[in-house]
Amino acid sequence: MVSEYRSPKSKYYTYIGIAIFSFLVLLPIYILAIIALGDPSQTVAAYYPALIPSKFTLANFIKAFSGYGSVLIAAFYKSLETAFIVASLAILLGYHAAYGLSKLSFKVSSILIALLFFSTMIPSLTIAIPISVSFLKLGLYDSAFGLALAQELIVLPLTVFLMMGALQSVPKQLESQARVDGAGFFQTLYQVIFPLAIPGVISAFLLSWMMSWDEFTFAVILSPVHPTLPILIYFDSTARGDILTATSFSLLVTLPVIVLTIVLSKFIKGSYLTAGITG
């Protein structure tokens, strides 16, 4: 347990810090929302746009999405599919890799982790083209699964790293206890350690999901025919050059991230891990 004395005053400073941070993070989303939902006369067309518009409209959305429906839904679905494959695969592979690494000595595991991150040092653009050639041969080109595999290159090192942290927070003795209590190696891995690593697993899931959701380079090269949502928005905003429809799209991209974060956040907090271990 970490307990340190904190004066009542320092609590206020913490709150002030959180308030400033939240303001900086939330303001762009707020501006995005009011441009998308506010009447253009009060937002993009105004000399001095009001921070709180009084007239709202759905016209921007209707204009953006009308006659676009099926393409948009397909792109949204493709992004969703890719992101869930990326996140699930990252957890599946990352959990086992992280467990193996956590069993090695720190010296060896840190070298391996550094090697893992080596793949993120190569620009996506330079490997995306050879990958697309291979994918064409393998029939993975333009598919959600192929794109997910490529995105795994940038996602997986970070997921492994995050999950190693999660596994370190699981007391070693619980693993021994489970083995003594009759659990086999895999039973221990899935039924004892995994539930205790859930907060870290969920964080890793969320992070890899979001990295895939707005990933651009691999998506634009490996899946141009049936694009993902970010690619569609890019095409749209450059082709049509309409900021009002672009903001509507952006809001559409942002919403699932917020929803998923809120849904999963209850799993992330949890300092109950060490409760069964006293002393």
Binding site: Q173, Q177, V180, D181, G182, L196, G276, T278, G279
Partner: peptide, 20 residues
């Protein structure tokens, strides 16, 4: 033999109860 095949019971110093 691995621990789960020895049919022994052990109580650790800190009890190692499963917190979940």
């Amino acid at each position: 033999l691995p621990p789960n095949k020895r049919n022994l019971a052990m109580v650790f110093q800190n009890y190692a109860l499963y917190p979940n």
